[in-house]
Design a protein around this nucleic acid. Sequence first.
DNA 1: CTTATGTAGTTGACAAAAGCAACTAAGTTC
DNA 2: GAACTTAGTTGCTTTTGTCAACTACATAAG
Lengths: 144, 144
Amino acid sequence: MNSQDIHHIREFDRFYTRIFRLTDKYHLQTTLTLLEARLLLEIAENGYNTANQLVQVLRVDKGYLSRILKRLEERGLLAQTPAELDKRSKILSLTDAGNEQLAIINQRSDDQVRSLFTNLTGSETKQVISAMQFIEEHVTKIKE
Amino acid sequence: MNSQDIHHIREFDRFYTRIFRLTDKYHLQTTLTLLEARLLLEIAENGYNTANQLVQVLRVDKGYLSRILKRLEERGLLAQTPAELDKRSKILSLTDAGNEQLAIINQRSDDQVRSLFTNLTGSETKQVISAMQFIEEHVTKIKE
DNA sequence: CTTATGTAGTTGACAAAAGCAACTAAGTTC
DNA sequence: GAACTTAGTTGCTTTTGTCAACTACATAAG
């Protein structure tokens, strides 16, 4: 891999964080932080249902996470029920209110993605998505 | 744009931030934060040489930035010389020590990019880069 | 010229986010 | 059942980021 290649990739990285950081604002106009929103999503849609799993996948400090989860619970968005198998851990799930919040966030996030692509034709959009999938499939091969 | 499309794009977004966040650590093993490293880069390589320009391009609070620049100056990495044209502003430039730090960061960052791609063949790498460039060219059309 | 208005950067006060380490309670190993 | 590991909690601290007020300079209008 030559230095031109590396240059292109780092260039893309800066581009990406600049442009798509807009998408990071999807939690605005709700009362949730970015991380809180992401937690709801991971719990409800990606099946991560213990604090420990979330620590692994989001690489966040467990103490910090513990507090955030407590806050979400206090706000009635999250339920933490003691696990039967392993009494040290708690099973996380969204309450109805939590699911509603998540739906709002998803809606807003979808809107923002849509607005990022409004200037593209249908076929350009398809090509961008193909490009994304190509990157995803190939770069995922990596061990962490 | 249909909901499948949106799903793919959001999926890519999560993928990207998860994988490439590794790259965000390029400042590690130096004493610089991510933002500090980025500032050095923008000043030395992208020609942004006033605090105000950096505020625009990186979208950071000017008070916060002011403090960070002061810290970089105190550490001998940055020089701030009063501008002749507009005495309110200061022209930013890296000291030799600052350029050395930046070189280290660039080296490290390059290494990390390289390691992200070690499992790809040469032609796969080329294709990933093409995909990145396609995304970059098309999604940049957007007004902010 | 001088008054009004705008701009670049600084500073203080504060709030939110994140990290670290010690701890509890429950599981695991041998 | 003693030694060790693991899931989550709590107290303490640092880092990061926000906001508003302020200074010094710049620019435009009368």
